[in-house]
């Protein structure tokens, strides 16, 4: 028996999201009195792989097969299935991001393993196996009971945090049995948004809405994000108007995020928007309308003109950072 955690790297390095996942899976393995195995696909140096040990993974499996360098849902599912079988894993943990969404449900159907997506905590009970998740895009939580011997959990981003639990990780190569016929997805070209903080992983998010009046006014938003090392985001009308890309849209039909700090500039706070940000730890709202619903979920607020407040805020934060 074991817990298997699937971790992703970017250009051969693990980031916070991967370590949060290992921390989460390590707590479950500990609760169940079993061992934790991490699985990583792709070209990752062995000293990087062994970093998973700092968060509780006693074994790290690496598959270095160039055919797996790009996401192929069916082929990746087959690889993970073989690792699950080799390690006799009864719990499989993945991130709830793009890869998790693509792979975890396929794996669930393949293994007939019940799945909970967007889990917000470790299981509240192991018998019956019960995991809390967000439902109605954060407007409610549900306790889901998994009734199968093998269980799959995808963790909502920033829901658990990174916790050190150092063990020595044994790094092992894993060679799954896949044939060329297993690969059906041909990637013609790819585009990376390099140098940017990933919205779903960001500690701080600077977001703006229609109160910005037009895309030409986004300079101070970008500047504040850069001063804070934050990701930028926007409300739905802004993405729909084409002022900002859809990838930045947070809310019920966009991305659901849970950063430490969420700045909302010129966002009224419609219920669909709030659903996507309500798990943020500290929310700061600036809006000219004192009745804007965003103030009912914010921790700190300023009623005022965003164009006037932003430059002062940037200046003041720079001064604090310089101290």
């Amino acid at each position: 028996m074991s817990v298997l955690v699937f971790i992703e790297h970017r250009e051969g390095k693990f980031h916070k999201g991967a370590f949060e996942l290992v921390s989460y899976a390590s707590r479950i393995a500990n609760d169940m009195g079993t061992s934790l195995v991490a699985l990583s696909l792709g070209d990752v140096p062995s000293d990087e792989l062994s970093k998973a040990g700092a968060y509780g993974a006693g074994k790290v499996l690496n598959v270095n097969d160039s055919r797996l360098s790009q996401l192929d849902n069916a082929a990746w599912t087959k690889v993970i299935e073989q690792a699950v079988q080799q390690e006799s894993a009864t719990v499989i943990v993945m991130a709830s991001g793009f890869t998790g969404k693509a792979i975890a449900p396929r794996l669930s159907a393949r293994l007939r393993a019940g799945m909970v997506a967007y889990a917000t905590a470790v299981p509240s009970s192991y018998n019956p196996f019960t995991v809390r998740k967000k439902t109605f895009s954060g407007k409610a939580f549900s306790d889901v009971v998994i009734n199968t011997p093998v269980r799959i959990i995808t963790l909502a981003p920033n829901a658990f945090g990174v916790h050190e639990a150092p063990v020595t990780a044994e790094v092992k190569q894993f060679t799954p049995s896949v044939t060329d016929a297993d690969f059906t997805t041909k990637v013609e070209s790819s585009e990376k948004f390099s140098g940017k903080v990933l919205l779903t992983e960001a500690d701080i998010v600077v977001s703006a809405g229609r109160g910005m009046k037009g895309p030409e006014n986004w300079g101070p938003i970008e500047e504040l994000a850069s001063v804070l090392g934050a990701a930028t985001a926007c409300s739905r009308p802004v993405a729909d108007e084409g002022w900002r890309p859809h990838t930045e849209h947070v809310g019920q039909t966009g991305k659901v995020i849970a950063p430490n700090v969420y700045f909302a500039f010129g966002i009224s706070g419609a219920i669909q928007h709030v659903a996507g940000i309500s798990s943020s730890k500290v929310i700061i709202a600036v809006n000219k309308d004192p009745e804007a619903p965003i103030f009912s979920v914010a921790d700190y607020g300023i009623v005022g003109d965003v164009q006037k407040v932003l430059p002062q805020l940037i200046q003041s934060i720079k001064e604090v950072k310089a101290q």
Partner: peptide, 27 residues
């Protein structure tokens, strides 16, 4: 493969602390 148990609602937030627009450094 799964069943839904109890539901719960997010805990309401405490009141927003307002800062005067003329005093951004206070925020």
């Amino acid at each position: 493969l799964t069943s839904f148990g109890n539901f719960s609602l997010p805990v309401p937030k405490s009141a927003c602390r307002m800062v005067d627009a003329e005093n951004v450094p206070e925020l």
